[in-house]
Design a protein around this nucleic acid. Structure first.
Length: 518
RNA sequence: GCUCUGGUAGUGUAGUCCGGCCAAUCAUAUUGCCCUCUCGAGGCAAUGACCAGGGUUCAAAUCCCUGCCGGAGCACCA
C-alpha cells in the first residue's frame, strides 16, 4: 500500500519533493531549510556580535580593474556573514589614489556586477572620491585635537628619522600653523611630494610601522572621475577608511592580513576622536592552483596587453569574468571561499574545490549531449536509424534525445574498437569492428553489463553540429549531436564523458562553448 | 634590522581560549570496489596530518620555553 507511493516520491527530484512537501506540510519545509542553513554555517562566529544591535560590515574594493578570484574572498566572506547575522553591508570604493592605483572607470560597475554574480547585494554603495570634503573636515578636527602636523620632510629623510624613533623638525608645529598649511594643501598650492599631513602618534612606538604616518598627501594627477578631478590633496587609505568606518557605524571589519597594522595605526585617530574601533578579523593571502597567471590585477592586465590572454574572460585568466563565462555558478565560488574560513595564514585554494561545489549545483539541472572531439569516421552497417539516450540519466521524465545515425559515425580515436572488438554506441546499440566497418550486432545491453563492452559517445558523421570548445589548455574542436542546436547562449550542457560546458555563442549552425570542468 | 602574525593529511578545515571523551572531524583529492547504456551523479572502502626539541602534568594538538620554517607591515599604494 505504502511502498508504491514511496517509490514515486523517491523518483521525484529534490526540488519537486520540496514543492510537493510545501503543499502538504509547509512547516516541514521551513524545518528542512533551517536544518540546511545550520549545516551551511561554514564560517566561525564573528566576535562580540551580541554587543551590537546590528552587524554592519563593508566591502572596500579599490576599483582599479576587474576582479580576479582572490577578490572574491571579500564579498564571499562578508556577504555570508551578512546573511548569517541578517546584517548590513556597505560597498565603499576606496578610490583615493588617482595615480599609483588609478581607478578604472568601468570597474565600479564591474565590481557591483561581480558581487551580484556571487549572489550578494550591498545595502549601500559609496565612493570615497565623493567624500573628500568629509575627510577634510575630520582632518581639521584632528588638527584641533593636536593630532596632526604638516611636514615637508622627504620620504627618505622621514624614514631615517623614524627608524631611529626621532621626531622630525615639524613635529612640534602648533595647530594654527598646521591649519594654515593644510588649507594650502587643500587649495592645491603644493605639488606632489612637497607637503604631507602626518598623524602625531607616538614616535617612540616600538613598532616602526605605527610612527607618525601620513594622512594626506598631494597628487598632481587628476582623478579619473569628473566629480573628483579637481582635488589635489588626497587622504591615505588609513585615514579615509578610519573615518568612514566610524561614520557608517561599521561594527565588524574583515580584511586581508596586509592591513594587519591598520587597526593599530587608526587606533590613534580613534583615540583623538574618542571613538571606539570596530572588531577586526584578518584573512591571509590565497593562491589558486591550475593557473599560470598570478592573482594580481596588474599582471593579468599585462598579459592581456601582451596578447597572451584574449581578455578578462579568457578561460586561462583567473578572473571571475572567466569563471562566469565558463558557466561556473557564483555560489560555487562562494562555497569554496567560505570553506577557506578566515585564517590569517596563507592558503592554497584548489580549483577542484570550486569545481566540486559547482558540480553539486549544476549536475541535476544540466542536459546531456554528445560531443566527439577529433572524430574518426567509421561506416556503420545495420541497426536503427537513430539513438535515443536520455536527456538526463536520473530523470527519465525529461525525455530522450533523438540522435540520428545514417550510415557512418564519428568516434573519438581512443574509443574506436580494435578489429573484431565491440563497443556500445550509447543510446543506440552494439557494433563490432569488422574490417574498419562498424557492424550492428543486435545484442542486448547484457554485453555491457556482463561482457565489459565499453559504452561510448558518438555522433553521425554527416548530420552534426560543429563545436569549438574553449578550455584552459586551448581550443578544442569537435562535432556534437544535432539536438544541441535547440539550446541557446548561456545554457549549460554536459557533453557525456567530456565534461560540462556553457554555450557561449551560436553563429549559423556553429557553436562556441566554454569548458566548465569535468 | 625592527614590529606583527601564523605553522593539523596533497589541499582546505574542525578541535587549541577552558589539557583528558583526539591512536584527531568534515570536505576535497587520489586509488579500489559497487551501481549506472558517461570518465557525471550516487554508494562503500582505502590512503593520508598535530613543524622540531625540551619543559609542566597522572594526562599535551591543546599550557610554557627554545629552535626551524612561512606570511605581513615598517609607502606621500590600496
Amino acid at each position: 500500500m505504502i511502498a508504491p507511493v514511496c517509490e514515486r516520491v523517491n523518483d521525484l527530484a529534490d526540488e519537486a519533493k520540496r514543492d510537493r512537501l510545501a503543499e502538504v506540510d509547509p512547516d516541514a519545509v521551513a524545518e528542512l531549510e533551517a536544518e540546511a542553513e545550520a549545516e551551511e554555517q561554514l564560517l566561525p562566529d564573528l566576535p562580540d556580535v551580541a554587543d551590537h544591535e546590528e552587524v554592519r560590515m563593508r566591502l572596500a574594493p579599490n576599483p582599479n580593474g576587474p576582479w580576479h578570484l582572490g577578490n572574491a574572498r571579500m564579498p564571499a566572506v562578508i556577504g555570508t556573514y551578512k546573511s548569517m547575522y541578517d546584517g548590513w553591508m556597505l560597498c565603499r570604493f576606496d578610490d583615493t589614489d588617482p595615480e599609483t592605483k588609478r581607478p578604472d572607470l568601468d570597474a565600479y560597475d564591474g565590481i557591483i556586477d561581480a558581487i551580484d554574480y556571487l549572489g550578494f547585494e550591498p545595502d549601500e554603495v559609496v565612493r570615497a572620491s565623493d567624500r573628500v570634503e568629509t575627510y577634510y573636515e575630520h582632518a581639521r578636527d584632528l588638527i584641533d585635537a593636536g593630532g596632526a602636523y604638516a611636514c615637508t620632510c622627504s620620504q627618505e629623510q622621514f624614514s631615517e628619522l623614524k627608524a631611529d624613533a626621532e621626531p622630525c623638525p615639524h613635529r612640534g608645529q602648533d595647530a594654527d600653523e598646521t591649519h594654515a598649511e593644510f588649507d594650502r594643501m587643500v587649495a592645491g598650492e603644493y605639488e606632489s611630494g612637497e607637503m604631507v599631513l602626518r598623524v602625531r602618534t607616538d614616535i617612540e612606538q616600538k613598532n616602526p610601522a605605527l610612527r607618525d604616518w601620513v594622512a594626506f598627501r598631494m597628487v598632481d594627477t587628476p582623478h579619473p572621475r569628473e566629480a573628483a578631478a579637481e582635488y589635489r590633496c588626497w587622504p591615505m587609505l588609513d585615514f579615509q577608511s578610519a573615518i568612514d568606518d566610524h561614520l557608517f557605524d561599521i561594527t565588524h571589519i574583515i580584511r586581508g592580513i596586509d592591513l594587519q597594522d591598520s587597526a593599530k595605526r587608526q587606533g590613534f585617530l580613534y583615540d583623538y576622536f574618542g571613538w571606539e574601533y570596530p572588531e577586526v578579523t584578518h584573512w591571509g593571502r590565497i593562491e589558486v592552483d591550475e593557473y599560470d597567471v598570478p592573482l594580481s590585477t596588474s599582471s593579468i592586465k599585462e598579459r592581456i596587453a601582451e596578447g597572451e590572454l584574449d581578455g578578462w574572460d579568457d578561460p586561462r585568466a583567473p578572473t571571475l569574468a572567466s569563471l562566469e563565462r565558463r558557466g561556473v555558478r557564483g555560489g560555487a565560488v562562494v562555497a569554496a571561499m567560505t570553506e577557506l574560513g578566515v585564517s590569517t595564514s596563507s592558503a592554497d585554494l584548489s580549483m577542484s574545490a570550486i569545481y566540486s561545489a559547482n558540480r553539486e549545483r549544476v549536475d541535476e539541472g544540466t542536459d546531456r549531449a554528445f560531443l566527439v572531439r577529433d572524430g574518426e569516421r567509421l561506416p556503420v552497417d545495420g541497426g536503427p536509424d537513430a539513438g535515443h539516450p536520455p536527456v538526463h540519466p536520473e530523470h527519465e521524465d525529461r525525455g530522450r534525445r533523438d540522435v540520428p545515425l545514417d550510415d557512418a559515425v564519428l568516434l573519438e580515436p581512443g574509443d574506436v574498437p580494435a578489429e573484431g572488438d565491440r563497443v556500445w554506441l550509447k543510446g543506440w546499440g552494439p557494433v563490432r569492428n569488422e574490417d574498419g566497418r562498424l557492424v550492428h550486432t543486435d545484442e542486448g545491453i547484457e554485453v555491457v553489463r556482463e561482457e565489459g563492452v565499453d559504452v561510448v559517445h558518438w555522433v553521425d558523421a554527416d548530420e552534426n553540429v560543429p563545436v569549438t570548445m574553449r578550455t584552459m589548455d586551448g581550443d578544442v574542436s569537435g562535432r556534437a549531436e544535432p539536438g544541441v542546436g535547440d539550446y541557446g547562449v548561456d545554457d549549460l550542457l554536459q557533453f557525456e564523458r567530456v565534461g560540462f560546458v556553457r554555450l557561449d555563442d551560436v553563429v549559423g549552425d556553429e557553436l562556441t562553448t566554454y569548458f566548465t570542468h569535468a
